[in-house]
Design a protein around this nucleic acid. Structure first.
Lengths: 171, 171
DNA sequence: TATTGTTATACTCTATAACTATA
DNA sequence: TATAGTTATAGAGTATAACAATA
């Protein structure tokens, strides 16, 4: 479940912008289509942007055996030691049945430990092991670099604005 | 394949922002976690924003029997009549084997027609039927309204900025 | 009665290999 | 030899129902 994903190709096969009639089509491939309607939609653009970052994530984070959800969980545990599966599922919008294998794999890899919860014997507090702490430190560094590269065409201020506006959509 | 998706629940179970120590936790649910690291990432925020819009899309567009990919295809055909599967796959980053059923379902529903391509007997030009044109007109109107509601907390200028910055990530 | 974690399961999405007809 | 469309299939992602232990 935490194996490295297959190499993603086709990362940037997007059509070019808004010239319908005069299409020089200098490069290879078929005639590009007029995508102006779709490119005016927040949902479409948010998805395209996420997919590009996701592809870069898969490439660079495979060496850590980490998919986006794994990074999210481990990073949350770094800053929220003892969090329960219930809390992590609520935070990341993951259904509990789909979270079981994620946690079990991390346990098998020796990255986390499940300890009895101090106040609730139904729950298990999740804690990073020393190996887990070490991996998260490397992974957070790699992700920060990855994010800088992905947003290299934005200024620091534009990147902050982008994040702020995205949060106005979903928060 | 073009059946209405199941009702999506859990649309907004996001944790609250950055106060780790003082968490009043006025509402129901477990203690929220500190998500500041994840909320500083473009990839995380782009995905969360897309998922919220996607959930609204599923709710409102089910009456048209339309998922996001279906809307993208039909809207592209509205503005690019005669486009081939190859062109649509390249534009939307869909693998050809996964596109076969999408087109076949639209054909079965009487929304599109596959006509011989004028210059290439291997290819098929895809054209909207009158019923397809009518459905796209309604769907585009609904999506525009959906987008306005999803970005209701953004000014018109902020929405344009958001789209422009997202395109600087993926274009 | 409600909640935590879990199993089993099904459906959707995404990916690869290989085929055919044509270029 | 390369490309457009297709078939079969495998893997990942996401969803529901139902259960045991505990609150």
């Amino acid at each position: 479940m935490a194996t490295a994903p297959r190499p993603r190709k086709r990362a940037a096969s997007l059509a070019s912008p808004a010239h319908t009639t005069t299409a020089p089509n200098g490069s290879a491939g078929p005639e590009p289509l007029d995508t102006r309607v779709l490119e005016g939609l927040v949902g479409y653009n948010a998805r395209r942007a996420y997919l590009v970052i996701s592809a870069t994530f898969a490439e660079r984070m495979a060496v850590y055996g980490m998919k986006p959800v794994d990074f999210s969980v481990l990073s949350l545990l770094e800053h929220n030691p003892g969090a329960t599966s219930r809390q992590l599922c609520a935070t990341l919008d993951i259904l509990p049945p789909n979270f079981v294998n994620i946690v079990a794999d991390m346990d098998r890899r020796g990255l986390i430990e499940r300890r009895p919860h101090p106040h609730d014997r139904r729950a298990l507090g999740l804690h990073l092991t020393p190996a887990g702490h070490q991996l998260v430190a490397q992974a957070e560094e790699a992700v920060i670099q990855l994010e800088q590269d992905a947003s290299a065409r934005l200024t620091e201020r534009e990147r902050d604005t982008l994040i702020r506006l995205l949060q106005k959509i979903y928060l």
